[in-house]
Structure formats: structure tokens, C-alpha cells
Amino acid sequence: MHELAICQALMDQVDQIVLEQHATGVAKIILQIGPLSGVEPHLLKQAFPLASAGTLAEHSLLEIKPQAIEVECSKCSQRTLAKPNRLVCGACGDWKTRLISGDEMLLESVELICEEEMNHV
């Protein structure tokens, strides 16, 4: 369950962004998580309410964009989709491939709630 630790690191980053942008809260957090990152999206979702409690992002929405695993073959240069434990080229079967996507563990963006808007509402 390292997802809780990762979620806590995320909350630190988000809090910092809120302060930098002089916002008052967070509406939504968008992440990109690939299967080869070693992070389970559903565990991250479970950890989120715990990690966000008492932070500026409490009650915000967590959206996780799953990323497909794609490899590029160093032999035939084809780009194909792959499975986590089978990263061989889907076209020619060669195992010398380069990962194009699938190991993302990224904070893509944060939607902030700003003071002015709060006043309007």
C-alpha cells in the first residue's frame, strides 16, 4: 500500500499549487497513471479521501486517466500496444522495444477554485 504515501506526496504538491496561485480551494485533480508505474488507480482513489482530509483539496474530485502501454520496436520500428508483463513488439515479436507510454505517474492538472468566483456564487 505505497499508494497512501504517493497520495500524500500528491496532496503536498496540490497544496503548494493552491498557495502559489492564490486560490481558495481545489475542484478537481487530474492524474495520468500507467500500468507500469507500479501504482494501482483504485488504491489511489481509496487513499485519496484519507490523504486529502484537512488539506486545501479536501472534497475535490480525483480523476485518473489510465494510460495504455505502447512500445516501439527497435527492429521494425512499429508502435504497438503491449501488456505489462509482455512488452515485446506486437508486429514482429522482437523483445528489444522502447516504452512509449504506460509508466506514467503524473499530476496532469489541477482545477482551482478562486476567490472571485466564490464571491459570485
Binding site: A9, Q13, Q21, K28, M105, L106, V110, I113, C114
Partner: peptide, 11 residues
Amino acid sequence: NEAVSVLRSLL
């Protein structure tokens, strides 16, 4: 809402 693009590792 103001959307801030980050694209930074969670870690």
C-alpha cells in the same frame, strides 16, 4: 475554474 497544467511526477 482556473485549470493549472502541471505534468509533474506525483513523486
